[in-house]
Amino acid sequence: MTSTLAPRKRSTVVRAGDRVFAGLSTGAGLLILLTLAGVAAFLTIEGIPGILANPDEVKSGQSFWPYVWPLVYGTLIAATVALILATPVAIGVALYISHYSPRRLGQSLGYLVDLLAAVPSVVYGLWGIQFLAPHMVPVYEWLDKHAGFIPFFAGPASATGRTIMTACIVLAVMILPIMTAICREIFLQTPRLHEEAALALGATRWEMARLAIFPYARSGIVSAAMLGLGRALGETLAVAMVLSVTAGTVTANLISSTNPSTIAANIALSFGEASGRTVNVLIASGLVLFVITFLVNFAARAVVDRRKDFSGAN
């Protein structure tokens, strides 16, 4: 570009191309900051009147914090359970595809998993209602009868299976493809030499994975989990379709038909008929979700940063 005009100094090796490239890269980084600042500003400006709104100005008839607390609770439960369900499975599947399955099979399986990332939420929702929920009813009844002493399974079990547990499973299935795909790519990038060295030292396949693959892939796995969590926290339509919600519920019970809603699903369910201050309240709940994501990522980043010995560039 025009920066070829920049004067060259003999002593330094900074070249025009370098400047352009560095400029473009920095610019892209800054643009991301700007976008995020834009989103944050939008949420804050539109959300603050919602947080400050009087109970009688909004449809729920509650002031903001009592209104949003059950939603926060539901969001956290749903996302946490989904992540707990999905992470080990995603790592297992990725490991299977990258290191355990026969090469050719692994590729086509990876392909299959990639495809599923594109299935629209509506389809997951329909699958949840029509297939998963009815199949889960006997499981819930069994849990209610035999594990009812654990607060999570206190019951009474839902007759249609449209519980927060079902929603969590749907969410887990939804975030599985993207988590698996990222883990798989990272596992595949483990230096071949490390793996072979481990095997040559007599390590079994698992020991090789533990010694060579996991330390190398740690930060990537956390990234994958964060992406998955992001999607789980923000998923709207599938949760809205699957979950039977009751406003204001806070319960540890995972298998009844009285469930807390999630922030994102609540926005989707209420936004259409909202007007005036109620809209601000919904946007403010979006702001809360934003802050939650912020905090969760902060924690995750702190964990990853403590050990980054193996990554290539740093």
């Binding site: 449809k59 039977s244 009285t258």
Partner: peptide
Amino acid sequence: TWPVKGGEAAE
């Protein structure tokens, strides 16, 4: 918005 707690909700 449905006001009563309990029962089953669907979208």
